[in-house]
């Protein structure tokens, strides 16, 4: 097992290196120019050329890449072209916000998706199954921004039940220590702030969790149905075991596998989905940062962020793969 982990970690290095090359070329192939983002309506050819010179954007691509790689190898993710802030500094402030949102969404999706999937699988093609299908499809085929605006409109604007926007009310002046809004609220010792931070999380977590919810529900349903038809389940039933016992001991233990794969895959798309959700809900996380950085053609920020995302994603999937070994004794890593 240890060898397996070491090999996967070592294997990730050439991949990340390759990704850094591809990303670098990719982003520069896109039409656009950070100099125009800096100059706005004042962009003239002379001023643009001057900025290119300052930023080294007039140098050959391979020189620019080697400079960037040199920084990366020293653990330096570079600085924004637009506002000169170190990517690592801004990341440390913004990432916890995205993590909190992602965890919230995952809890919503898994916590609701698995029971719903099991419920639907109990009577395939019955009316409950149909209802669950429709609800989960609703979640997936409505774009996040429509769902997000609608949730905010109903619960924040019309009903005034939940707060909007952002991760916490700025009037509470909670000191950012860890930059996790809920943890900071706890540290501030103000119970009102903790309640406020949780309340702010609910709507964006639902909006972001809607797509994984649909997928988790559907996959759970499909794999439970699959497993229920296996011989050993029939045998267990024939032996007269209680329904609950068959469900828990025989069906779910095996149905967990595909569900876990999908959850692992969804972590990647959650980070992607956070891009829209954070914009709609005004969360200053990594997602909204990606949006503005892409719009500004802030190459350094975009490529460093994607490299960080890729590393996180590879790590999560490694953990998922290791998780299999615990969930399914039939799998051994040699």
């Amino acid at each position: 097992m240890l060898r397996f982990i070491v090999r996967r970690v070592l294997g990730a290095i050439p991949i990340l290196f390759g990704l850094s090359v591809i990303l670098f070329m990719f982003l520069r192939l896109l039409p656009g120019d950070p100099a125009i983002a800096i100059l706005g309506q004042h962009a003239t050819p002379q001023l643009i050329a001057q900025i290119h010179e300052t930023l080294g954007l007039d140098k050959p691509l391979y020189v620019q890449y080697l400079n960037y790689l040199g920084q990366l190898l020293q653990g330096n993710f570079g600085a924004s072209i637009i506002d000169s802030r170190a990517v690592a500094d801004t990341f440390a402030i913004r990432f916890p916000i995205t993590v909190e949102l992602t965890i919230g969404a995952l809890i919503f999706a898994v916590g609701l998706g698995i029971p719903l999937g099991r419920l639907a699988a109990r009577h395939p093609n019955g009316w409950i199954d149909g209802l669950v299908t429709v609800v989960s499809l609703f979640g997936i085929s409505i774009p996040i921004f429509v769902l997000g605006y609608t949730l905010a409109f109903i619960f924040a604007v019309e009903l005034h039940l939940l707060p909007y926007p952002g991760p916490i009310d700025p009037r509470l002046s909670v000191d950012p220590v860890t930059h996790f809004p809920i943890i900071d609220a706890v540290l501030s010792g103000n119970p009102g702030a903790v309640v406020d931070a949780f309340a702010h999380l609910i709507l964006p977590a639902i909006a972001l969790g809607s797509i994984p919810l649909a997928i988790v529900t559907r996959i759970t349903r499909a794999s439970v149905i699959d497993v229920s038809n296996e011989d050993y389940v029939r045998t267990a039933r024939a032996k007269g075991l209680t329904r609950k016992r068959v469900d828990d001991r025989h069906i779910m233990r095996n149905a967990w596998l595909p569900v876990t794969t999908v959850i692992g895959l969804q972590v990647g798309s959650l980070l992607g989905g956070a891009v829209l959700t954070e914009t709609v809900f005004g969360w200053p996380g990594v997602g909204s940062w990606v949006v503005t950085s892409i719009q500004n053609h802030d190459y350094i920020v975009v490529q460093s962020l994607i490299l960080i995302f890729a590393t996180i994603f590879l790590t999560v999937n490694l953990i998922v793969d290791i998780g299999y070994a615990f969930l399914n004794p039939r799998i051994r890593y040699s």
Binding site: G11, I15, L19, F26, L265, G268, V275, F309, I312, F313
Partner: peptide
Amino acid sequence: DTILMRVVDVLLAVPGILLAIGIVAW
């Protein structure tokens, strides 16, 4: 398998919309 899957992992790690943007640029 190992090589292909690691490449796939990398592609999965890039947000889909960004991947699509790159392909359109290409």
